[in-house]
């Protein structure tokens, strides 16, 4: 797969267009020629948008900001996969060298009832913020902290917590799941804090509140298909879901 330096691609794009949350959407087809393989997927969209504007047509709306795979804002569903064909990368980090000339690429927004489409390829993921607000924190007001080195944390625990904390809140896990479950996202935060000594005091309460909020937001149930883990750009592991289920058991049956 892929193409070498300096090459150029001719592509057909089928892109989802939807005026706003209430409107019904449909696919629009565009031809692009001379796309450099060194471009990122979003730079290819920049080229397309410039072309549309020059033709007097409205640009395609899509979310993005850092373009470095860390803010979690970009969110395109490409050829049936969140963030496209390459594993472990976000849409903004996907480069055109992952495609061949003549390819048809289908681009859609995340599809989930809990993530309504805002416009074209942009969706509303504020449900994630509300889940964090329900309990995804340690209650410590500014100024209340003890010296940082008074809390010793074994490196392996710190590393494991860091692994879970690497979640960028992009929502690809939800988009990948046939049930629109948010378990991977929620369990990553629950795990991070459950693994750290600082997180112990609120451990039980936290998982209960976060799961309740998750359900209220309309995310589906987890049926262990593992699609979320496979599509997560940050390698958040299914073990987190198992840990959260244990946390939940522990909290429910006291």
């Amino acid at each position: 797969m892929g193409s070498g330096h300096g090459q150029e691609l001719n592509l057909t794009l089928k892109v989802w267009r939807q005026k706003n949350t209430k409107a019904t959407g449909s696919f629009e087809t565009h031809q692009l020629t001379g796309i450099s393989v060194d471009m990122s997927f979003l730079e290819m969209f920049d080229v397309l948008n410039e072309k549309l504007i020059s033709e007097g047509k409205e640009a395609i709306a899509f979310d993005h900001d850092c373009r470095e795979g860390i803010c979690g804002m970009c969110s395109m569903y490409i050829n049936g996969r969140p963030h496209g064909p390459k594993q472990g990368v976000t849409t903004c980090q996907l480069h055109m060298r992952s495609f061949k000339t003549g390819d048809t690429i289908i681009v859609e927004p995340w599809r989930s009832g809990a993530f309504p489409v805002v416009k074209d390829l942009a969706v509303d993921r504020s449900a994630f913020d509300r889940i964090i607000a329900s309990g995804g924190y340690i209650s410590v007001n500014t100024g209340n902290a003890q010296d940082a080195n008074n809390i010793l944390i074994p490196k392996t625990d710190a590393d494991e917590a860091f692994g879970a904390a690497a979640c960028i809140g992009c929502g690809a896990c939800v988009a990948a799941c046939k049930n629109s479950s948010a378990m991977l996202f929620v369990s990553a935060k629950v795990s991070q804090l459950a693994l750290l000594p600082q997180g112990q005091v609120e451990r039980k309460e936290r998982v209960l509140k976060m799961v309740a909020q998750m359900d209220e937001e309309g995310f589906g149930n987890c049926t262990n298909t593992g699609a979320c883990e496979a599509e997560c750009p940050k390698g958040i592991s299914l073990e987190n879901i198992a840990r959260m289920n244990r946390e939940l058991m522990g909290a429910t049956f006291k």
Binding site: Y137, I138, V140, T142, G143, N144, A145, Q146, D147, A148, N149, I151, L152, I153, P154, K155, A158, D159, A161, F162, A165, Q192, L193, L196, Q198, G199
Partner: peptide, 22 residues
Amino acid sequence: TSIIDQCVAQGVPLAREYGGLL
């Protein structure tokens, strides 16, 4: 120095040595 204390208290997983120190 207070910033580091505050962040660690919040559960920010800063890098550690094998002895558990930052």
